[in-house]
Amino acid sequence: MQRTVFTSQSFKSVLGAVNRNGSVTACREPIRLITYLHSGSRVRGLKRDPASYMLNPYGLTYESVNKKVGSQASQFFSKIRNQLTFNKFDIKIDDRLLLQCFTHKSFAHGKVPYNEKLFIIGSHFLKVQASLHSIKSTDSQNSSGLVNGMNFDTLGSYESKNLLAEPKLFKFMESLGLHELVFWKKRDASGTKIFNGEPKIVSSVLNSVVGAILLTNGVEKASLFVNNFLLREHTE
């Protein structure tokens, strides 16, 4: 049985856009003529309406935030900046980068900039800072094994491993109310938080904010931010 599928390319050739010299290769330049945008249940071959998927699980739309002006956009960014106390550490990150930090790879099929690479550099930086924290905050119970006054025996312990672990960071972000601002897509809309991996996604946002601070504001400010804000808030 033969199936006929009308793709955009075949539309073009049906319309007879043949090059002047008659070559076929030049003819294959495709032009999409589809104007209908589908929303609702998925139909194969139809383009989805961006308005139906460009929003996060809490109903915040990407477009409202992505605009340069607008009350919702300014509210979004000022909330992040205030809750993460950027002013206190004199951290300057532009809106676009901040939005990238708050966008996960799962959102909109990677059509908009997402935080994967920022997360990688940020998480490795956080690991170093967390281990530094446990080396230096030593209650010298075992002073024989110190290396230049630092106690490396605390590393590898449960506390040290979980200092900036995923569940803790998620709780922290939740307490700041920032988890609702993250753009991501649930793998199953009816599934639970854990099933959809919300803790991991939200904690990765915090990691990537650290990564962005590190790349744009330098190591000093980033380590100050981690030590005096993230680690201090946790120990309290």
Partner: peptide, 16 residues
């Protein structure tokens, strides 16, 4: 043991 953990963190960060 502890030195290795810290060294690994440092080394990975520097490499990345």
């Amino acid at each position: 043991y502890g030195l290795n953990i810290f060294g690994k963190n440092l080394l990975t960060f520097e490499t990345v």
